[in-house]
Write a protein that binds this DNA or RNA. Structure first.
Length: 265
DNA sequence: ATGCCGCCAACATGGCGA
């Protein structure tokens, strides 16, 4: 079973590219971030035609997440439990395939947090604290789960092309690192690192400064697995080519993020 | 110092968020 996550930076602005990727990658489950539309404007039928059950937690103009599954879906939760939030940044559901063990999937669009320090950074820290508590609660169930999405966290120096350039940025602050490490400390596994070792891999390239052609990227989209899910992990990857403006449907521009995915038994 | 991009209100472009 293939589980993917992708920050699409407006689903409607780049729908042809997104549908092309779904046709090629064919994930069983996918969470999307920054759909940037209300539920009514989500292209439900385009994805239902491809066999997906569609659950949307939208918002006008900004943020917004969705969860798509080819398998039956139960217990859909919209909003991070225990966290009062004006934004639509979290969706979670249990995936219950007929031929595979169930898996709970949480789709995260974690606040950017810049500028730091300041109220936006405090909001990011509060979200991460609530995510930590929620992960603890999920771990207590001893169910297999994956918390995946745009974490807006560069975990370590090797996850960005120029660490000094990120000093003081909300994605790379010591407090940000500490919060992310705390998830690992709970026993969650970074699936990309588990499979890819020390390989240099990015999931986001800024539209500015020629970041893509120079490969000045950062790795901020993550798949964090519970121990029970990590036991089932067989592969993981990042679909880097999706970022290339000259590949795929050139009528629309690519997102600044690319899909990340895992294969679990 | 800036470089991109999408959304919105509302017609031209500027504010916002990233």
């Amino acid at each position: 079973m293939k589980i993917a996550s992708w920050n699409v930076n407006s689903i409607n602005a780049r729908l042809p590219r997104i549908l092309d990727w779904f046709d090629a990658a064919n994930p069983d489950v996918c969470v999307l971030q920054e759909i940037k539309c209300v539920d009514e404007k989500f292209p439900v039928s385009d994805l239902e035609e491809r066999g997906y059950h569609v659950h949307v937690f939208g918002e006008k103009s900004y943020n917004g997440v969705a969860l798509l599954s080819k398998h039956p879906v139960e217990d859909v939760t919209k909003g991070l439990p225990g966290f009062e939030d004006e934004h639509s940044r979290y969706i979670e559901a249990s995936i219950t395939p007929e031929d595979t063990a169930p898996l709970r999937v949480g789709g995260i669009y974690l606040p950017n947090g810049n500028p730091a320090p300041g109220p936006k950074y405090e909001y990011k820290m509060a979200f991460m604290t609530a995510l930590h508590k929620h992960a603890e609660n999920l771990l207590a169930t001893e169910e297999a789960f994956v918390l995946t999405g745009d974490y807006n966290v560069i975990p370590q120096a090797e996850d960005c092309y120029d660490p000094p350039a990120w000093t003081g940025d909300a994605l790379f602050m010591p407090e940000t690192h500490a919060k992310f490490r705390a998830l690992t400390g709970l026993g969650l596994t970074d699936a990309i690192r588990q499979i890819k070792g020390n390989e240099i891999l990015y999931s986001y390239w800024d539209y500015q400064k020629g970041a893509w052609p120079k490969d000045h990227g950062i790795r901020i989209d993550h798949l964090m697995l519970s121990p029970q899910a990590a036991d089932r992990l067989v592969d993981a990857g990042i679909d880097k080519d999706v970022r290339d403006p000259n590949k795929g449907n050139q009528d629309v521009k690519p997102s600044d993020h690319v899909p990340v995915w895992i294969e679990v038994e």
